[in-house]
């Protein structure tokens, strides 16, 4: 049944977020640390184990796949509620502070990716 997939997804999402909040608390950080990441790993592990035992049928999976497909619309809705006016009000200081870091970060991506790839080729 579709609800099995949706329920499993909700369980993984919630448990991961709780783990992330707990980790944040332990580290003394006022933020969720890695919550969604833990949820994703949990979902991968659980669906894999259940599928192998025949307990996660395609119909159940469609409950997960539906929400995966809703991801882009949800992101568009998220964009529509950003504080764009607030970002523009920050003036040149906020614009430069936000954008210069983005330029350097983008430039770093291929550099770090190459380090990782070189290592992987050497290791395997």
């Amino acid at each position: 049944m579709i609800i099995y997939g949706v329920a499993l997804l909700a369980f993984c999402a919630l448990l991961g977020l709780v783990v992330g909040d707990t980790l944040g608390l332990l580290l003394g950080v006022k933020a969720n640390v890695g919550g969604v990441g833990f949820s994703m790993i949990l979902l991968l592990v659980l669906t894999d184990a259940l599928t192998k035992r025949g307990g996660f049928k395609p119909v159940s999976a469609s409950g997960v796949i539906f929400w995966s497909g809703m991801y882009i619309p949800i992101v568009v809705a998220m964009a529509a509620q950003q504080n764009v006016v607030g970002a523009l009000k920050g003036g040149p200081l906020a614009f430069l502070a936000g954008s210069i870091g983005v330029v350097f970060s983008f430039a770093l991506v291929p550099v770090i990716a190459r380090i990782g790839r070189g290592k992987r080729e050497g290791g395997s």
Binding site: A13, M40, L44, W67, P73, V76
Partner: peptide, 18 residues
């Protein structure tokens, strides 16, 4: 629709099949 709850929910769903 675009709030934190459904955003996290659907992001986790994208991991299925990764």
């Amino acid at each position: 629709l675009g709030g934190a709850m459904l955003r996290d929910f659907s992001i986790v769903a994208t991991a299925y099949g990764a």
